[in-house]
Structure formats: structure tokens, C-alpha cells
Design a protein around this nucleic acid. Structure first.
Lengths: 235, 235
DNA sequence: TAGTGGTCTAGACCACGGT
DNA sequence: CCGTGGTCTAGACCACTAG
């Protein structure tokens, strides 16, 4: 068996969640039903569910079942405080540059592998606003080779990660980040509507994905004046 | 049974690791030995070990065993890049204010509970340097009530978390943080040897611990010019 | 009361590491 | 070769949820 039984079950359930066959807030089949359906024991079924639990796809409720959760986008990474609270209400994303093929920039937030640099580069820029206030300017780079047709894809709910997950079945598996406090240069200051030289936070990011050798590189330029960057980490 | 069997085993193993009975790089008893020792099945033994694995106390090696790891101090939280690499070599910690009992400050990084505020407050300040360069100024507050004799305790290897873990058997179980880019005020600028008004990163932190209602509140003022703050997150 | 997830037992076979 | 951890089976009892 090249793949373990529990990860087969895990993959089946995950893709059904991603494709909406098990919608948000609905319940997965109970453990006993999974056992019968796939001819496995509860140990195996539970191990598959444990994976989904750890990755935030479901939550379990004793005596009730396994409920599909709204997929978290950032896997414990930084999120802008106020964004999540305001989601669907007051938050806007403006594309400064739609995804397009271009050359890799001279400097990325983190070094890319040689094999990545040999492929075309896709890049896009977005401005995130709360109400009318621009709060974060984001630049992203990734290897376009590994995502057919990505340049012409619309983002699901405006979310890049959601698009990756649902259209390409790619999950974020890790990240590296680096934080720096800088003075805003002219361009950033204009975009974020602040004084040139005002203190901003630059977050450099490198995401690893479930697709080997596909990484996402980002710079986030954040005006933390009214919307500080927040993060919660739990055991 | 008020406690599950696997968490009993987990606690036994954890405290032995913390007390050095199982030293770093040594192997825990094998799963079969644990089964015999505690009259449990492998399922239960493995569940206990899984917890230790998840929390970074051990790493498993197929065909060899469970090896005790150097305990990570920050649980995926922010760490200063360069600090860890330079540890024991070029890094210094200077106490600006040794731990002492005082009143709670008017404003904490995050709101504390009423029951915490009714207890005495312990606070201390440290300056972290790489070579001769001050890089981070840190202020910490916590409820002294729950840590007898802490004011007069020396830090193990200069590490607060290590002291908590080894002297008080308290683990960090989670954290909240908030990031802001600020201009350095006079005091901070003087301590970090930078120009007043230079951009600095302020990290506000609230740690939760394995001791109920014991939290640690911190401000970190970071000069990110030469030592940006880094963080890695893996699945 | 029936169904759910949480825990635990007592086995089994396999793949990996070192002798 | 033997001991290790990785996977899996087939059962059992319990605590929680809801009709």
C-alpha cells in the first residue's frame, strides 16, 4: 500500500469539504458510518478525522458529531486585527496589479530555489482597506508553471488561499516570516495615505504548500496605526 | 477516573523530561516497555507520546525510538532571528529592572482578569543585546501570587521560560500578540542606541500557561534594522 | 433511549535501524 | 536477526446530546 488507509480517507473527506459536498456547519458522517462505508475500524476513521481537526477543517462535538468549519485562511499566521471581525462587512480588496506573468524580481522576500527561478513568475498586488482606509499593501510572487491558467482565474471570495485550496487543491503547509519596522517611502505612503517617513511594518513571507517546490513569496506593508497586526496561537 | 490514563502517562513522562531524568538526546523507554511498565496498551502509550511530540518535547525515529529534544522556548511564536543562532556566543541579557513586586500598571498589553489584578504584580525589564548592540527592550508583568519566591529566583540560563518550566513545572500553552510599528521615544531610543523617532517594532504579548489564571504580559521594543524578527511555522 | 464521540484493550502485520 | 515505531483490526465501556 503506497498510501496509508487513514490518509486515503482523510483525502476523500478533505476534497469533499473543499468541493462543498459537505458544506460549512454541516456534519460529516459519524465515525461508525465512516467505518461501515469504507470498511475500516474506528481507530483508522478517527486518525483521518484527527488530521482534519488539526488542520482546522472540522470541529468535533461530543455526542453530536464532526462539524465542518469555516476554513481558516492563515493557519496561525498573522492576520490583521479588524479584518476578520469586519469580514464581509467593511473590508475591501483592490487589485493594483492583477495576476500576470513577468520576470522574477531581483530580490524576493526569501531566496527561491533554482528550479523555481527557471519557471515563469506570476505576480500581483493588492491593497486591503477597512472602510475607506487603506491598511495593507500586499505584493505576491509565485511560480506560475505549477498553476495552469492561474493568470486568468478569478479569486474565490477575493481570497487567494481559498482559490488555491478549492481550484487547485493546494494547502498551505508552512511559512517563514520576517518583520521589520520601516519608514514609508513615497509610493507606499501614497497608497496607504500616510505621511512619507511614517513608521510602517513590513512583513516578509514565504509560504510552503502541499505542492512540492511551489512557494508563495509576499511583502505586506502595513499601516499599524489604527489596525495593529494580531495573532493568536493555541496549543 | 478523573484524569485519562494517557494524560497521566503524558504527565509522568513530561515531568521526568523537565527534571532531567530523561536528558536531551536520550531515548524514552520504548512503546512496548511503557506498555509493560504502566500496564497499558500501545494505543494509550502512543497517545501520550503523541502529545509530547506535538508539544516538541520529543522526536520519533522509526526503528530507533523517541528521543528527547532540546525544548523549544517559544512554541512557534516570534523569536529574534540571530538570537537563536548566536545563543551562547554573542548574546547578552542585561537586567534593567530585576523582578520585583509592584502595583499593576495602568495599561497592560492586553486586559488582565479581575482575579489577576487583585494579586500582587511582579515586573522586570531586560535589554537583549547581540555583541554590543542592544536589539530588544522587554518589559514583563505577571501575577506573583502564583509563583512563590519568584522575585528572588535566578533565571536558568538567563531564560524566563526555562525557569518557569523547570522550577515551577509551568508550560506556555498559548499566546496572543499584537504588532505595531512606532517611532522610538526618547527612553527607548537611548536604550537601543538609535535616533529618537527611528522606526521600531513593538510586540505586545499575552501568554497563557498551564497554570489557570496565570498569564504573562510583555512589551518588546525591537530595533529591526540589523536583526529582523523571524518566525517559522510548520504543519 | 439511541446515536455520537472519547477512551482503552489485546492482539496483528509491516517497515525501518542497527547488530 | 531483533527491537523499534507505524498502521490496522475487532471489539468494549463510558460520557455527552437530543428527541
Amino acid at each position: 500500500m503506497r498510501q496509508t488507509r487513514y490518509s486515503q480517507i482523510y483525502n476523500i473527506l478533505k476534497s469533499r469539504i473543499q468541493q462543498g459536498q459537505y458544506g460549512v456547519d454541516s456534519f460529516l458522517p459519524s465515525e461508525n458510518v465512516l467505518c461501515a462505508t469504507y470498511s475500516i475500524t474506528r481507530t483508522t476513521a478517527r486518525k483521518a478525522l484527527d488530521e482534519l481537526l488539526r488542520e482546522g477543517f472540522i470541529e468535533k462535538q461530543h455526542g453530536k458529531g464532526s462539524r465542518v468549519k469555516e476554513r481558516r485562511q492563515t493557519l496561525g499566521l498573522l492576520t490583521v486585527k479588524g479584518f476578520s471581525e469586519a469580514v464581509g462587512e467593511n473590508v475591501k480588496t483592490i487589485f493594483l496589479q492583477k495576476p500576470r506573468v513577468q520576470l522574477w524580481p531581483e530580490e524576493l522576500p526569501f531566496p527561491a530555489s533554482d528550479s523555481e527561478l527557471k519557471t515563469p513568475c506570476i505576480s500581483f498586488e493588492r491593497l486591503r482597506c477597512v472602510g475607506d482606509s487603506p491598511v495593507v499593501m500586499e505584493i505576491d510572487w509565485l511560480s506560475g508553471m505549477r498553476l495552469k491558467g492561474f493568470e486568468n482565474t478569478d479569486f474565490i471570495d477575493g481570497s487567494f488561499f481559498k482559490t488555491l485550496s478549492q481550484k487547485y487543491l493546494i494547502e498551505i503547509t508552512g511559512s517563514e516570516q520576517e518583520l521589520r519596522a520601516l519608514n514609508a517611502d513615497e509610493k507606499i505612503a501614497a497608497l496607504l495615505k500616510i505621511e512619507p517617513g511614517a513608521p510602517i511594518l513590513r512583513i516578509s513571507l514565504k509560504f510552503s504548500t502541499s505542492k512540492p517546490d511551489l512557494h508563495i513569496y509576499s511583502y505586506l506593508y502595513c499601516n499599524t496605526e489604527n489596525y495593529p497586526i494580531g495573532n493568536t496561537y493555541k496549543h
